[in-house]
Design a binder for these strands. Structure first.
Lengths: 181, 181
DNA sequence: GTCTATAGGAAGATAGAC
DNA sequence: GTCTATCTTCCTATAGAC
Protein backbone atom coordinates (compact mmCIF):
# COMPACT_ATOMS: atom_id res chain seq x y z
CA UNK A 1 0.00 0.00 0.00
CA UNK A 2 1.10 3.54 -0.67
CA UNK A 3 2.22 5.31 2.49
CA UNK A 4 -0.27 7.60 4.21
CA UNK A 5 0.29 11.29 3.70
CA UNK A 6 -0.93 11.98 7.23
CA UNK A 7 -1.08 9.51 10.11
CA UNK A 8 -4.40 8.30 11.43
CA UNK A 9 -3.70 9.93 14.77
CA UNK A 10 -2.96 13.30 13.20
CA UNK A 11 -6.15 13.09 11.15
CA UNK A 12 -8.18 12.16 14.22
CA UNK A 13 -6.66 14.99 16.24
CA UNK A 14 -7.65 17.48 13.56
CA UNK A 15 -11.17 16.05 13.48
CA UNK A 16 -11.52 16.46 17.23
CA UNK A 17 -10.46 20.09 17.12
CA UNK A 18 -12.76 21.01 14.28
CA UNK A 19 -15.81 19.23 15.69
CA UNK A 20 -15.14 20.78 19.07
CA UNK A 21 -15.00 24.23 17.52
CA UNK A 22 -17.94 24.06 15.13
CA UNK A 23 -20.18 21.20 16.22
CA UNK A 24 -21.49 18.46 13.98
CA UNK A 25 -23.36 20.43 11.34
CA UNK A 26 -20.96 23.35 11.53
CA UNK A 27 -17.94 21.27 10.61
CA UNK A 28 -17.98 20.83 6.85
CA UNK A 29 -16.09 18.09 5.03
CA UNK A 30 -14.04 20.76 3.33
CA UNK A 31 -13.10 22.27 6.67
CA UNK A 32 -12.29 18.88 8.13
CA UNK A 33 -10.26 17.90 5.08
CA UNK A 34 -8.32 21.17 5.11
CA UNK A 35 -7.53 20.73 8.80
CA UNK A 36 -6.18 17.24 8.20
CA UNK A 37 -4.12 18.31 5.19
CA UNK A 38 -6.13 16.00 2.93
CA UNK A 39 -8.88 16.45 0.35
CA UNK A 40 -12.50 15.49 0.97
CA UNK A 41 -12.22 12.50 -1.34
CA UNK A 42 -9.33 11.18 0.73
CA UNK A 43 -11.37 11.43 3.88
CA UNK A 44 -14.04 9.33 2.18
CA UNK A 45 -11.40 6.78 1.33
CA UNK A 46 -10.49 6.48 5.01
CA UNK A 47 -14.03 6.86 6.31
CA UNK A 48 -16.39 5.45 3.66
CA UNK A 49 -19.50 6.18 5.69
CA UNK A 50 -18.73 9.89 5.55
CA UNK A 51 -19.44 12.47 8.18
CA UNK A 52 -20.93 10.23 10.87
CA UNK A 53 -17.80 8.09 10.68
CA UNK A 54 -15.63 11.17 10.97
CA UNK A 55 -17.44 12.18 14.13
CA UNK A 56 -17.08 8.66 15.52
CA UNK A 57 -13.37 8.75 14.75
CA UNK A 58 -13.09 12.04 16.60
CA UNK A 59 -14.91 10.51 19.57
CA UNK A 60 -12.65 7.48 19.51
CA UNK A 61 -9.58 9.69 19.50
CA UNK A 62 -10.89 11.82 22.34
CA UNK A 63 -11.77 8.63 24.17
CA UNK A 64 -8.17 7.44 23.96
CA UNK A 65 -6.76 10.51 25.68
CA UNK A 66 -9.64 10.50 28.09
CA UNK A 67 -9.10 6.89 28.99
CA UNK A 68 -5.46 7.48 29.73
CA UNK A 69 -5.83 10.73 31.62
CA UNK A 70 -9.11 10.27 33.48
CA UNK A 71 -10.24 6.63 33.50
CA UNK A 72 -6.95 4.81 33.95
CA UNK A 73 -6.15 6.62 37.22
CA UNK A 74 -9.54 5.53 38.57
CA UNK A 75 -8.65 1.90 37.93
CA UNK A 76 -5.16 2.05 39.44
CA UNK A 77 -3.97 0.27 42.54
CA UNK A 78 -3.80 3.27 44.84
CA UNK A 79 -6.31 4.12 47.54
CA UNK A 80 -9.74 5.32 46.38
CA UNK A 81 -9.06 8.85 47.62
CA UNK A 82 -5.74 8.90 45.80
CA UNK A 83 -7.34 7.63 42.61
CA UNK A 84 -9.97 10.35 42.73
CA UNK A 85 -7.29 12.98 43.04
CA UNK A 86 -5.22 11.54 40.21
CA UNK A 87 -8.25 11.32 37.93
CA UNK A 88 -9.20 14.93 38.69
CA UNK A 89 -5.69 15.95 37.65
CA UNK A 90 -6.35 14.08 34.43
CA UNK A 91 -9.61 15.97 33.94
CA UNK A 92 -7.78 19.27 34.26
CA UNK A 93 -5.19 18.16 31.75
CA UNK A 94 -7.73 16.69 29.34
CA UNK A 95 -9.56 20.00 29.14
CA UNK A 96 -6.37 22.08 29.32
CA UNK A 97 -7.51 23.62 32.61
CA UNK A 98 -10.82 24.64 31.09
CA UNK A 99 -9.47 26.19 27.91
CA UNK A 100 -10.93 23.41 25.77
CA UNK A 101 -14.61 22.68 25.32
CA UNK A 102 -15.70 19.06 25.61
CA UNK A 103 -16.17 17.50 22.20
CA UNK A 104 -18.63 15.07 23.78
CA UNK A 105 -20.83 17.89 25.01
CA UNK A 106 -20.52 19.86 21.79
CA UNK A 107 -21.61 16.87 19.72
CA UNK A 108 -24.27 15.90 22.25
CA UNK A 109 -25.84 19.36 22.07
CA UNK A 110 -26.15 19.36 18.31
CA UNK A 111 -27.83 17.52 15.48
CA UNK A 112 -25.38 14.65 15.35
CA UNK A 113 -26.90 11.40 14.04
CA UNK A 114 -27.94 8.59 16.36
CA UNK A 115 -24.79 6.43 16.20
CA UNK A 116 -22.75 9.42 17.31
CA UNK A 117 -25.16 10.25 20.10
CA UNK A 118 -25.16 6.66 21.27
CA UNK A 119 -21.42 6.61 21.40
CA UNK A 120 -21.39 9.76 23.50
CA UNK A 121 -23.94 8.28 25.87
CA UNK A 122 -21.82 5.15 26.22
CA UNK A 123 -18.66 7.15 26.93
CA UNK A 124 -20.26 9.38 29.54
CA UNK A 125 -22.00 6.37 31.04
CA UNK A 126 -18.71 4.57 31.29
CA UNK A 127 -17.07 7.49 33.01
CA UNK A 128 -19.91 7.71 35.45
CA UNK A 129 -19.85 4.00 36.25
CA UNK A 130 -16.11 3.90 36.95
CA UNK A 131 -16.25 7.12 38.96
CA UNK A 132 -19.23 5.88 40.98
CA UNK A 133 -17.42 2.62 41.76
CA UNK A 134 -14.42 4.53 43.05
CA UNK A 135 -16.60 6.87 45.06
CA UNK A 136 -18.35 3.89 46.62
CA UNK A 137 -15.00 2.40 47.56
CA UNK A 138 -14.07 5.72 49.09
CA UNK A 139 -17.14 5.54 51.29
CA UNK A 140 -19.75 7.60 49.45
CA UNK A 141 -23.32 6.53 50.19
CA UNK A 142 -25.03 7.81 47.03
CA UNK A 143 -22.13 7.09 44.70
CA UNK A 144 -24.11 7.08 41.46
CA UNK A 145 -25.68 10.44 42.21
CA UNK A 146 -22.42 11.94 43.41
CA UNK A 147 -20.65 10.73 40.28
CA UNK A 148 -23.32 12.35 38.12
CA UNK A 149 -23.07 15.58 40.05
CA UNK A 150 -19.31 15.71 39.75
CA UNK A 151 -19.38 15.06 36.02
CA UNK A 152 -22.19 17.58 35.57
CA UNK A 153 -20.17 20.15 37.50
CA UNK A 154 -17.31 19.77 35.03
CA UNK A 155 -19.53 19.84 31.96
CA UNK A 156 -21.50 22.80 33.27
CA UNK A 157 -18.33 24.72 34.02
CA UNK A 158 -17.14 24.08 30.47
CA UNK A 159 -20.43 25.43 29.15
CA UNK A 160 -20.05 28.58 31.22
CA UNK A 161 -16.44 28.89 30.12
CA UNK A 162 -17.43 28.63 26.47
CA UNK A 163 -19.98 31.33 27.13
CA UNK A 164 -17.34 33.69 28.46
CA UNK A 165 -16.90 32.90 32.15
CA UNK A 166 -13.42 32.87 33.65
CA UNK A 167 -11.52 29.72 34.58
CA UNK A 168 -12.50 29.75 38.24
CA UNK A 169 -15.67 27.74 37.75
CA UNK A 170 -13.77 24.97 36.02
CA UNK A 171 -11.09 24.93 38.69
CA UNK A 172 -13.71 24.44 41.40
CA UNK A 173 -15.39 21.68 39.41
CA UNK A 174 -12.04 19.88 39.17
CA UNK A 175 -11.51 20.35 42.90
CA UNK A 176 -14.84 18.72 43.59
CA UNK A 177 -14.04 15.94 41.16
CA UNK A 178 -10.90 15.12 43.12
CA UNK A 179 -12.29 15.46 46.63
CA UNK A 180 -12.88 12.51 48.93
CA UNK A 181 -16.61 11.92 49.48
CA UNK B 1 -50.06 47.08 7.07
CA UNK B 2 -51.28 43.66 6.11
CA UNK B 3 -51.93 41.48 9.14
CA UNK B 4 -49.24 38.99 10.13
CA UNK B 5 -49.92 35.40 9.22
CA UNK B 6 -48.17 34.25 12.37
CA UNK B 7 -47.57 36.30 15.50
CA UNK B 8 -44.09 37.36 16.43
CA UNK B 9 -44.29 35.30 19.59
CA UNK B 10 -45.28 32.16 17.70
CA UNK B 11 -42.44 32.68 15.25
CA UNK B 12 -39.96 33.20 18.06
CA UNK B 13 -41.18 30.10 19.89
CA UNK B 14 -40.63 28.03 16.78
CA UNK B 15 -37.15 29.47 16.36
CA UNK B 16 -36.25 28.56 19.93
CA UNK B 17 -37.37 24.98 19.49
CA UNK B 18 -35.50 24.47 16.23
CA UNK B 19 -32.26 26.08 17.40
CA UNK B 20 -32.44 24.06 20.61
CA UNK B 21 -32.84 20.85 18.62
CA UNK B 22 -30.29 21.38 15.86
CA UNK B 23 -27.89 24.09 16.99
CA UNK B 24 -26.91 27.13 14.96
CA UNK B 25 -25.47 25.56 11.83
CA UNK B 26 -27.85 22.60 12.00
CA UNK B 27 -30.94 24.78 11.84
CA UNK B 28 -31.49 25.74 8.20
CA UNK B 29 -33.63 28.64 7.08
CA UNK B 30 -35.94 26.19 5.39
CA UNK B 31 -36.36 24.25 8.64
CA UNK B 32 -36.88 27.43 10.60
CA UNK B 33 -39.34 28.78 8.06
CA UNK B 34 -41.29 25.52 7.94
CA UNK B 35 -41.51 25.45 11.73
CA UNK B 36 -42.89 28.96 11.82
CA UNK B 37 -45.40 28.30 9.06
CA UNK B 38 -43.75 30.89 6.84
CA UNK B 39 -41.42 30.83 3.83
CA UNK B 40 -37.72 31.73 4.02
CA UNK B 41 -38.33 35.00 2.19
CA UNK B 42 -40.87 35.99 4.82
CA UNK B 43 -38.35 35.36 7.56
CA UNK B 44 -35.97 37.69 5.77
CA UNK B 45 -38.68 40.29 5.70
CA UNK B 46 -39.03 40.09 9.47
CA UNK B 47 -35.32 39.59 10.15
CA UNK B 48 -33.38 41.36 7.38
CA UNK B 49 -29.99 40.37 8.80
CA UNK B 50 -30.81 36.71 8.30
CA UNK B 51 -29.74 33.82 10.43
CA UNK B 52 -27.85 35.71 13.14
CA UNK B 53 -30.95 37.83 13.70
CA UNK B 54 -33.08 34.70 13.90
CA UNK B 55 -30.82 33.30 16.59
CA UNK B 56 -30.93 36.58 18.49
CA UNK B 57 -34.71 36.56 18.27
CA UNK B 58 -34.73 33.04 19.68
CA UNK B 59 -32.48 34.17 22.53
CA UNK B 60 -34.71 37.16 23.21
CA UNK B 61 -37.76 34.94 23.36
CA UNK B 62 -36.07 32.45 25.65
CA UNK B 63 -34.90 35.38 27.75
CA UNK B 64 -38.48 36.53 28.23
CA UNK B 65 -39.65 33.25 29.70
CA UNK B 66 -36.45 32.94 31.64
CA UNK B 67 -36.82 36.39 33.10
CA UNK B 68 -40.33 35.67 34.28
CA UNK B 69 -39.70 32.19 35.63
CA UNK B 70 -36.19 32.43 37.03
CA UNK B 71 -35.03 36.03 37.37
CA UNK B 72 -38.21 37.73 38.54
CA UNK B 73 -38.54 35.49 41.63
CA UNK B 74 -34.98 36.42 42.61
CA UNK B 75 -35.93 40.09 42.62
CA UNK B 76 -39.15 39.69 44.59
CA UNK B 77 -39.86 41.01 48.03
CA UNK B 78 -39.74 37.70 49.89
CA UNK B 79 -36.86 36.52 52.05
CA UNK B 80 -33.65 35.54 50.25
CA UNK B 81 -34.17 31.84 51.06
CA UNK B 82 -37.72 32.03 49.77
CA UNK B 83 -36.59 33.76 46.59
CA UNK B 84 -33.99 31.08 45.93
CA UNK B 85 -36.62 28.39 46.28
CA UNK B 86 -39.07 30.19 43.99
CA UNK B 87 -36.39 30.74 41.36
CA UNK B 88 -35.39 27.08 41.46
CA UNK B 89 -39.02 26.18 40.82
CA UNK B 90 -38.81 28.49 37.83
CA UNK B 91 -35.67 26.71 36.61
CA UNK B 92 -37.47 23.38 36.74
CA UNK B 93 -40.38 24.81 34.81
CA UNK B 94 -38.22 26.62 32.28
CA UNK B 95 -36.48 23.38 31.35
CA UNK B 96 -39.63 21.26 31.71
CA UNK B 97 -38.03 19.31 34.55
CA UNK B 98 -34.98 18.54 32.44
CA UNK B 99 -36.79 17.42 29.33
CA UNK B 100 -35.65 20.50 27.39
CA UNK B 101 -32.06 21.33 26.53
CA UNK B 102 -30.91 24.88 27.14
CA UNK B 103 -30.93 26.90 23.94
CA UNK B 104 -28.24 29.11 25.45
CA UNK B 105 -25.89 26.17 25.95
CA UNK B 106 -26.70 24.66 22.57
CA UNK B 107 -25.91 27.91 20.79
CA UNK B 108 -22.89 28.56 23.01
CA UNK B 109 -21.41 25.17 22.13
CA UNK B 110 -21.67 25.69 18.39
CA UNK B 111 -20.41 27.91 15.63
CA UNK B 112 -22.82 30.75 16.27
CA UNK B 113 -21.49 34.17 15.21
CA UNK B 114 -20.07 36.64 17.69
CA UNK B 115 -23.18 38.78 18.30
CA UNK B 116 -25.07 35.65 19.28
CA UNK B 117 -22.28 34.46 21.55
CA UNK B 118 -22.06 37.86 23.18
CA UNK B 119 -25.76 37.84 23.88
CA UNK B 120 -25.49 34.44 25.50
CA UNK B 121 -22.61 35.61 27.65
CA UNK B 122 -24.62 38.62 28.74
CA UNK B 123 -27.66 36.51 29.62
CA UNK B 124 -25.73 33.96 31.64
CA UNK B 125 -23.75 36.75 33.27
CA UNK B 126 -26.96 38.48 34.24
CA UNK B 127 -28.36 35.33 35.77
CA UNK B 128 -25.19 34.81 37.73
CA UNK B 129 -25.11 38.37 39.01
CA UNK B 130 -28.69 38.32 40.27
CA UNK B 131 -28.29 34.87 41.76
CA UNK B 132 -25.05 35.85 43.48
CA UNK B 133 -26.69 38.94 44.96
CA UNK B 134 -29.49 36.85 46.41
CA UNK B 135 -27.07 34.26 47.73
CA UNK B 136 -25.08 37.02 49.41
CA UNK B 137 -28.24 38.33 51.03
CA UNK B 138 -28.97 34.82 52.22
CA UNK B 139 -25.61 34.72 53.94
CA UNK B 140 -23.31 32.99 51.47
CA UNK B 141 -19.67 33.97 51.83
CA UNK B 142 -18.44 33.16 48.30
CA UNK B 143 -21.64 34.16 46.55
CA UNK B 144 -20.16 34.64 43.07
CA UNK B 145 -18.52 31.22 43.12
CA UNK B 146 -21.58 29.54 44.57
CA UNK B 147 -23.78 31.14 41.92
CA UNK B 148 -21.47 29.87 39.20
CA UNK B 149 -21.47 26.39 40.68
CA UNK B 150 -25.24 26.26 40.91
CA UNK B 151 -25.71 27.42 37.34
CA UNK B 152 -23.02 25.03 36.14
CA UNK B 153 -24.76 22.19 37.98
CA UNK B 154 -27.95 22.89 36.03
CA UNK B 155 -26.19 23.27 32.68
CA UNK B 156 -24.10 20.17 33.27
CA UNK B 157 -27.13 18.13 34.22
CA UNK B 158 -28.81 19.25 31.00
CA UNK B 159 -25.76 18.12 29.04
CA UNK B 160 -25.88 14.70 30.70
CA UNK B 161 -29.61 14.53 30.10
CA UNK B 162 -29.17 15.30 26.42
CA UNK B 163 -26.59 12.54 26.33
CA UNK B 164 -29.05 10.02 27.68
CA UNK B 165 -28.91 10.28 31.47
CA UNK B 166 -32.14 10.06 33.44
CA UNK B 167 -33.85 13.03 35.07
CA UNK B 168 -32.34 12.51 38.51
CA UNK B 169 -29.26 14.60 37.85
CA UNK B 170 -31.36 17.56 36.80
CA UNK B 171 -33.61 17.21 39.82
CA UNK B 172 -30.62 17.33 42.16
CA UNK B 173 -29.23 20.37 40.34
CA UNK B 174 -32.55 22.14 40.85
CA UNK B 175 -32.55 21.16 44.51
CA UNK B 176 -29.12 22.70 44.94
CA UNK B 177 -30.26 25.79 43.05
CA UNK B 178 -33.08 26.30 45.53
CA UNK B 179 -31.19 25.49 48.73
CA UNK B 180 -30.23 28.10 51.31
CA UNK B 181 -26.45 28.64 51.40
C1' DG C 1 -46.60 40.86 4.72
C1' DT C 2 -46.22 36.83 2.15
C1' DC C 3 -45.30 34.62 -1.63
C1' DT C 4 -42.85 32.29 -6.15
C1' DA C 5 -38.79 32.12 -8.47
C1' DT C 6 -34.14 32.10 -8.58
C1' DA C 7 -29.39 33.48 -8.03
C1' DG C 8 -24.79 32.01 -6.50
C1' DG C 9 -22.37 29.20 -3.78
C1' DA C 10 -21.36 25.50 -0.49
C1' DA C 11 -22.90 21.20 1.21
C1' DG C 12 -22.19 15.82 1.23
C1' DA C 13 -20.80 12.39 -1.68
C1' DT C 14 -18.87 9.65 -5.86
C1' DA C 15 -16.03 8.28 -10.22
C1' DG C 16 -12.02 7.46 -12.00
C1' DA C 17 -7.09 9.05 -13.15
C1' DC C 18 -2.60 8.66 -11.15
C1' DG D 1 -3.76 6.43 -0.92
C1' DT D 2 -4.53 10.78 -2.86
C1' DC D 3 -6.01 13.50 -6.11
C1' DT D 4 -9.13 16.42 -9.76
C1' DA D 5 -13.45 16.80 -11.45
C1' DT D 6 -18.04 16.51 -10.94
C1' DC D 7 -22.95 15.33 -9.43
C1' DT D 8 -26.94 16.51 -6.91
C1' DT D 9 -28.84 18.59 -3.29
C1' DC D 10 -29.20 21.99 -0.06
C1' DC D 11 -27.80 26.36 1.68
C1' DT D 12 -28.30 31.62 2.48
C1' DA D 13 -30.04 35.42 0.39
C1' DT D 14 -32.47 38.53 -2.99
C1' DA D 15 -35.89 40.36 -6.59
C1' DG D 16 -40.18 41.32 -7.57
C1' DA D 17 -45.30 39.89 -8.12
C1' DC D 18 -49.42 40.01 -5.43
Amino acid sequence: MRPQKVSGEAVADALVERFRRDGYAGASLRDLAADTGLKPASLYHRFPAGKPDLALAALARAGESFGQLVLAPLAGGASPAERLRASADGVARFYSDGALACVLAVLALSDAPMPVRERIAAMLGGWRAVLAATLAQAGADAAEAEAGDRIAAVQGALVLRRAGADLGDFARAVARMGAAP
